[in-house]
């Protein structure tokens, strides 16, 4: 954990009428696990069509924040809107319908280990479309080749390397052409070349399909390349947001320390 700075939420991260906002609104979300406070009044706006990169120290709650946006976790307090719908109020049916518009890449890939890669990627198609088996397989293979996994379709997840699992998870997240994709460390564990290909894919998805992306990453070159805006999470709050240029030029001490990878500074080393 970093030092406990008590920085108020930035005024720019709230909107007067979240129900009218096109995109995702996270408003005052707090979450604790037992005595451990993870999120402590997090405010965040993600306009539609934007790629937002969230940075922050390991263990600060970035993955927890992502899971709140799709209601895998319920906040202790605070609210979240997606396109004007407050997700904690949605009934199960509406929530399911909303989730179909989301893709989610888990930090640990979370592939179904009883199914081969092709079925992992195609499962959503099988459940939510009436496509034929050939068509599903074709689409699954198409997504797999987008992430550079041609030929891995018939392998089981246990036969893949860590980076291949990650990419199979990414293929699974994009198979239904979602409008929102949440990436939890998409390039971690990949070699620089594959990592850059994934960056290009994320950019391409936004440009061609207008996907709204929220990316959690520690990979700063990747962050600068794909982001429209960056936000920094520290001590359970968003302490900084800004465009890529603003981040480059900022003299916000925490952000500087983070992007320079300096163990000396306000965040502390451990």
């Amino acid at each position: 954990m970093g030092a406990q700075f008590d920085i108020p939420a930035l005024p720019g991260q709230r909107v007067a009428d979240p129900a009218a906002f096109q995109g995702v609104v996270v408003e005052g979300v707090s979450k604790s696990f037992g005595a451990k406070v993870v999120l402590n009044g997090t405010d965040l706006l993600i306009p539609k069509g934007e790629t937002l990169v969230i940075i922050g120290r390991s263990g600060e709650g970035k993955s927890v924040l992502l899971k709140h946006i799709v209601r895998l976790l319920e906040p202790d307090s605070g609210r979240i809107w997606v396109e004007g719908q407050e997700i904690s109020r949605l009934g199960i049916r509406h929530l399911m319908r909303l989730r179909r518009r989301f893709g989610f890449l888990f930090q640990g890939a979370a592939l179904f280990d009883s199914m081969d890669v092709c079925h992992n990627v195609g499962l959503m198609l099988k459940e939510h479309t009436d496509w034929t088996d050939e068509r599903m397989r074709e689409r699954a293979c198409e997504c797999l080749s987008l992430v550079g996994l041609d030929g891995a379709a018939d392998k089981l997840p246990s036969e893949l390397s860590g980076g291949m699992k990650k990419r199979a998870g990414l293929a699974r997240a994009i198979v239904m052409e979602p409008e929102y994709i949440l990436y939890d460390e998409p390039t971690t564990g990949l070699d620089p070349i594959t990592g850059d290909a994934i960056n290009e894919l994320i950019i391409k998805l936004r440009q061609e399909l207008g996907v709204t992306s929220i990316v959690v990453t520690h990979d700063m070159p990747s962050a600068f390349k794909i982001a429209d805006r960056m936000a920094m999470l520290s001590s359970g709050k968003i302490v900084f947001t800004g465009t890529v240029d603003e981040v480059r030029q900022t003299d916000h001490p925490m952000v500087r320390q983070f992007i320079e990878g300096n163990s000396q500074g306000p965040l502390g080393a451990f």
Binding site: K67, L72, R100, F104, F106, G108, A110, F112, M124, E127
Partner: peptide, 21 residues
């Protein structure tokens, strides 16, 4: 095992109900 490796969460995200499935 599916629960602790987030496979159940993944299923929920994919709008597939683990109870039915």
């Amino acid at each position: 095992t599916m629960k602790v490796t987030e496979q159940l969460d993944a299923m929920c995200i994919m709008a597939i109900d683990p109870v039915s499935y």
